[in-house]
Amino acid sequence: MKIKLKIWRQRDSRSKGEFKEYHLDDVSKDMSFLEMLDTLNIKLIKQGDLPVEFDHDCREGICGQCGVMINGIAHGPLKNTTTCQLHMRSFNDGDTIHVEPFKAAAFPIVRDLKVNRSAFDNIISSGGYVSVDTGQAPEANSIPVTFEEAESAFDAAACIGCGACVASCKNSSAALFTSAKISHLARLPQGDKETSTRVVNMVNQMEEEGFGYCTNTEACQVECPENISVLNIARMNYEYNKAKVLAKK
């Protein structure tokens, strides 16, 4: 396959970026999108140019590290797929592919296609955990959890934190990411105890990081690699409103 690439090149967060054009003549349709970028980088290094920087880790679709806008869509044309699980067979010979980093005020560009997603870590550390004493593992059956509860909690916990929801959202809202963690823990007896403080802290942190508000366009679920349900956002709103209405101070 012959591919024409228009890739966003930007030195650092403060400089101005622009699309640069590259040509690859020997792309296999079995390559993953990241392998195609590797091929380009090898070519660039051999020419003495700076390689295109992009985030990646497991390349198995489970770590949430990779993620770029491909032809204007987060993680590219396939729905519910990470960038590393997208293969060149999804494109045609002679195609022009636009590659841009995720863009949001809360995701400053580090370089080229690499963005800083620390804002997500800050949201998690503001409440995305269960406060328990560590020590011996407790007896597994001392807190009963039904199969259905466990499964629905796990559906929310499947979020890999890639940031495609923010990138796909016209408001750059992190509601899907934040709500996935809130509703994951609210569905389990261990986590539910702290729901009201957790939801208020995490929502406040989300706003502090500079993410926008959710207006329920539901674009996030469509592009989410894990197909995290937008109903988690409804759960977050419910828990937030409940916490605010029942607030004791």
Binding site: F19, N71, G72, I73, H98, E100, N171, E223
Partner: peptide, 12 residues
């Protein structure tokens, strides 16, 4: 404010 710099190629 939250969007920051807009996408140059947007098909969202």
């Amino acid at each position: 404010k939250a969007n920051g710099v807009s996408y140059s190629y947007d098909r969202r």
